[in-house]
Write a protein that binds this DNA or RNA. Structure first.
Lengths: 335, 335
DNA sequence: CAAGCCAAGTTTAACGTTACACACTCGGGC
DNA sequence: GCCCGAGTGTGTAACGTTAAACTTGGCTTG
C-alpha cells in the first residue's frame, strides 16, 4: 500500500480511501490510484484490516463431519447464504468429539471468526452454554428452551412421529428405530426417540427395546451393521425408521444383502431429505427438513447478532419439514 | 493481553513469551501468567498474530462443490492431514465457474491463506498458471506437464481404459461414456474420454458419438437425465461408464426407473470410489483413486512449498487407483 | 574481588490498515 | 478584502502481537 501511495504520488491514506470507496477523492486521483494498484498487483492485507476493524468477515460452521450428505448439502446452502452477506464460512469438523466441540465454541484455531453456526453432537445444552463465551452463536437442533444463542430447529418429535405413523399405517408392527446414540449431546436423537415411542403408543403397538439399537456414528456402515444384526436376530423388524439418510441407506443395503425385499419385507424411512435418498434404489422415503430455510435463518440470525450486538434476546425459529414418501416404504406389511 | 500483563504484574512481552512457550520465563512467573489468562479468559488475537508473522496458518481448498460425495470425502481427508500439520482448511466452492476459480487462485476473500489446494474445472492449464500469482499451490488433477505448482494426479486415461475394458470383457458393445463437459478446464475429463476411446479401439468396437453425451454438472440429476435420454433413444447403450459416482448413481436410477435391470440390461461403472457407491443398490463398480494418498501428498507438497520457499522445482506425484468390481457390472451382456 | 556471564524480564519498533482530526485550496457571499 | 463552507487530501495514532535489542541483578570464575 505504501508502494502504491509513493508511485501514485499520494498519501497512504488516500490509497486507503480509494480502496474502501470512501468519499472525498477526486475522480482523477481515484483513477490514478486504481491504475497503480492494478499495475503493481496490490492486494489488501486482510490480517491488518481485521486487526483494525475487530472483525474478520468469517463465520465458523461446526459440524460433526463434512462427508455426511446432510451436512455437505447444508454446508453448501450456508455458504451460499453467507456469500450473499459478504461472508466466508470456515468449516470445522468436530467428529462428535466433546473436546473438539468445546474448542470450536471457544473460537480457538488460527483464524478469528465473528460468529459460529454450531450443530452440537457430543455437548449437552448446559455445556454448550458454558463454553460459548459470549460469542455470537446460531445453534442448529433443539437445545432446551433457550441456549446461549439463537436456535434454528425442526420439530424432531413431530417429524419422527409422523414417519413412524406412516410405517404403522402400512401394517408394520415391528418398527426399529436406528440412531439412538451414546453421545449425550444433541437433543435431536432424544426427540426422535420420543416421537417414535409416541407413535407406537398411539397405535397400541408395544415397545421392544431390542428394536432401538445404539449407533456411534451416523454412517452407512453403522446403519448396515446395526440393521444387519437385527435382521439376523431372533425377532427381526419389518420396518426401520433411521435417524438419518445414511443410516437408512445402510439399512436398505443390509436387507438386500440378505435377500430380503425392500419395501415388501422391510420398509425403510430415513431422515434429512438428501439427494442421495432420492436417487438410491429403491428411492428412500425420508423426512426432509427445510434445509434452505434452515441455512437462511441461521445466517440471518447470526448476522443480526453480530452486527446489532448482544442486547438482542435469544430467538428460536422453527422450520418446517415434509415426509417425502417414496418406494422404500410403499408396500403394506408382508408384500 | 495488556490486561493480563497488568493483572499479573509483568510486561506484555512476558505474557507473549508465556503464551508462545518461549524460554527465559521462570516457573513462578509462568504459572502466575497462565492463571491470570485462565481467570480473565484471554484468547490471543489471530489477526494481530498473522499480521506480525506474515502467515495465517490457513490453506484454501478450492473445489467445485462440497455436496459432491467425492469432494466431501476428499475434503475430510485433507482437513485431517492439515490438522496434523497444525493447519486449518478453508473450503471455497467454485461451482465450476471460471471467475470464482480465478478469485480463489488469486487469494481474494476476507481471509489470508498461505496456500491453495485447487481442483480446477473451468480454467484451462494456462489460465491457472496465469492467475496463480506465485502463491504456493497444489493442483489436483492432470494439468499438462508442469503447472504453476505441484501436481497430484491419477492416471485418468489408464483408469478409464481399464474400466471400459472391463465392460467390454463382459460382452458389452454399446458402452456410453457420461461426463464429457463443455467446461474447457480440467484435463481429467479429456483423459477419461481418451481412455474410453482407446479401450474401444483396442477391442475393435466402433466409436459412436451419440454414446458420449455432454453434461454440465456432475450430479445425480444430470446423470439420470443424460442416461435416461440415451435409453429412450433409438439405439440405447448396454453399459455406462460414468466419470464420477454421482453420475453413475443417476444412470442406475434412470435404468431402474424404466424397468431395466442393472447390471443385466445395463452395466454401470462409476469413478471416485465413494462410500455411496459401495452402499447403493446394486453396489456400484467404481474406479477408486487413492483418496487418502492424494490428500496426504497434496498437503505434504503444499507444506514443503510454503515452509521451504519457492526455489523448489514443481513436482508431480502420481497416485494409484483400483477398479472395485461390484454387482453393477457383474453380468455378461444380455443377462 | 573485578570481570564476565547467564537467566529473567523489559523496551522499542515494527507488521498494514483505518478512524479521526486537521490542513489546504478555491469560489462565492457579504 | 474577509470569512465561510465545500471539496480534497494528509498526519497521527492506534488495533494486538512479536523479533530484536537492551537492562538488571545474581552467580560463577580466575
Amino acid at each position: 500500500m505504501r508502494d502504491v501511495a509513493t508511485l501514485a504520488g499520494v498519501s497512504v491514506m488516500t490509497v486507503s480511501n480509494v480502496v474502501r470507496g470512501a468519499p472525498n477523492v477526486s475522480d482523477a486521483t481515484r483513477r490514478r490510484v486504481l491504475e497503480t494498484i492494478e499495475r503493481i498487483g496490490y492486494v489488501p492485507n486482510s490480517s491488518a484490516r481485521n486487526l483494525r476493524a475487530g472483525r474478520s468477515g468469517v463465520v465458523s460452521l461446526a459440524i460433526p463431519t463434512i462427508d455426511n450428505s446432510y451436512f455437505a448439502e447444508l454446508a453448501r446452502l450456508l455458504m451460499d447464504e453467507a456469500a450473499a452477506l459478504g461472508w466466508t464460512v470456515l468449516i470445522e469438523q468436530t467428529k462428535g468429539d466433546g473436546e473438539l466441540e468445546r474448542r470450536a465454541l471457544a473460537g480457538y484455531g488460527p483464524t478469528p471468526t465473528d460468529g459460529l453456526v454450531f450443530y452440537p453432537q457430543a455437548l449437552a445444552a448446559d455445556e454448550v452454554a458454558a463454553h460459548a463465551a459470549g460469542r455470537p452463536l446460531a445453534l442448529l437442533g433443539e437445545q432446551g428452551d433457550r441456549g446461549p444463542g439463537d436456535l434454528v430447529i425442526v420439530d424432531n418429535e413431530g417429524a419422527a412421529r409422523e414417519a413412524v405413523a406412516h410405517l404403522l399405517a402400512l401394517g408394520r408392527r415391528r418398527v426399529a428405530a436406528v440412531g439412538e446414540s451414546p453421545a449425550a449431546g444433541t437433543e435431536n436423537s432424544h426427540r426422535r426417540i420420543a416421537g417414535y415411542r409416541a407413535a407406537l403408543e398411539e397405535a397400541g403397538v408395544p415397545l421392544d427395546a431390542e428394536l432401538a439399537p445404539r449407533v456411534d456414528h451416523y454412517t452407512r456402515a453403522e446403519g448396515a451393521a446395526a440393521v444387519g444384526a437385527l435382521l439376523d436376530g431372533p425377532a427381526p423388524p419389518d420396518a426401520v425408521f433411521a435417524f438419518n439418510d445414511m443410516l437408512a441407506v445402510g439399512a436398505v443395503h443390509a436387507a438386500l444383502e440378505r435377500g430380503l425385499r425392500v419395501p415388501e419385507d422391510l420398509a425403510v424411512v430415513g431422515f434429512d431429505g438428501t439427494d442421495e435418498a432420492r436417487y438410491c434404489n429403491p428411492p428412500l422415503t425420508t423426512v426432509a427438513p427445510d434445509k434452505r430455510g434452515i441455512a437462511r435463518e441461521a445466517m440471518r440470525l447470526l448476522h443480526e447478532r453480530i452486527t446489532r450486538g448482544d442486547d438482542l434476546p435469544y430467538r428460536t425459529v422453527r422450520m418446517g419439514h415434509e415426509l417425502l414418501v417414496r418406494r422404500s416404504s410403499l408396500a403394506t406389511a408382508g408384500g
